[in-house]
């Protein structure tokens, strides 16, 4: 038989960017433990709509843990208590009857709240736009097997490229640092032979944009890694630091074009 639970939901409500915002508390009854966390929020929304209130706005799309759209801090942990899991893949069986669940938006200066739990994450896009690409115009590529890439390197690049860009690393960091996000892209592209040509330029540009967007610095504490739903390791940050130091060293003697 399916088990159900009654919950108290304490959720951040904020009308728009300028609103001050505050917590609101709602009671929910008979939530199936097989429901996903976002389905629980759907039910809350329907309940609010039925009462003539606006539902809680939250970002979500694929609901299978890959698009990176869902973004909420559940009981103090971005994406909730299960490691390596996005909020959309979190299921209610990890909560218990009578529990109070506190839901807050990502907290970071570069991620202003748009409404309730929805924040603006375009600064992450800007970091990519400044250098997170390997230039290869459509039609200009050589044969895919022309350049063998050792399996270890390809696997490492894939580990880094698994980032879904949700911003949980920023949300988890007490400094709102985007180092894990930035480093994952840098490590992915800098480690591949195709990405070598733009390596130094990419690293410098992305770090400059990252700092310019107002993200904090890294204090190597590792909360980002713990919150990352794709378990991107801190290794990527070390990789970025290394590549940044090298690029700046070269830049000191001869400006990197």
């Amino acid at each position: 038989m399916e088990k159900t639970m009654n919950l108290t939901i304490r959720v951040w409500r904020q009308k728009n960017r300028l609103d001050v915002g505050k917590f609101a508390e709602y009671k929910l009854a008979d939530i199936s433990e097989d429901s996903s966390f976002l389905e629980m929020l759907d039910i809350l929304s329907e309940q609010l709509v039925a009462d003539g209130h606006e539902p809680v706005a939250f970002d979500h799309d694929c609901r299978e843990g890959i698009c990176g759209m869902c973004s909420m801090t559940i009981n103090g942990i971005p994406h909730g208590p299960e490691s390596g899991t996005t909020a959309c893949q979190l299921h209610m069986r990890h909560f218990h009857d009578g529990q109070t669940i506190t839901i807050e938006p990502w907290r970071a200066k570069p991620f202003p709240v748009i409404k309730d739990l929805v924040v603006d994450r375009t600064p992450l896009d800007k970091i990519i736009q400044s250098g997170g690409f390997i230039t290869a115009r459509a039609g200009s590529a050589v044969d895919a097997n022309a350049m063998p890439i050792a399996k270890g390197i390809a696997d490492y690049a894939m580990d880094a490229a698994a980032c879904i860009g949700c911003g949980a690393c920023v949300a988890a960091c007490p400094n709102a640092s985007a180092m894990l996000f930035t480093s994952a892209k840098v490590a992915h592209m800098n480690s591949l032979p195709q990405g070598k040509a733009e390596k130094d330029r990419r690293t410098l540009a992305m770090v400059t944009t990252m700092d310019g967007e107002g993200f904090g610095g890294c204090t190597n504490i590792g909360e980002c890694e713990a919150a990352c739903p794709k378990s991107i390791p801190l290794d990527m940050i070390a990789h970025l630091n290394r590549d940044y130091a090298t690029a700046q060293f070269k830049n000191f003697f001869k400006p990197v074009a």
């Binding site: 801090t73 103090g76 907290r107 970071a108 200066k109 570069p110 007490p174 400094n175 640092s177 107002g214």
Partner: peptide
């Protein structure tokens, strides 16, 4: 860092 994270989490 303080500037980047003016507001923390309630819990």
């Amino acid at each position: 860092n303080r500037k980047a994270r003016p507001e923390g989490y309630d819990s």
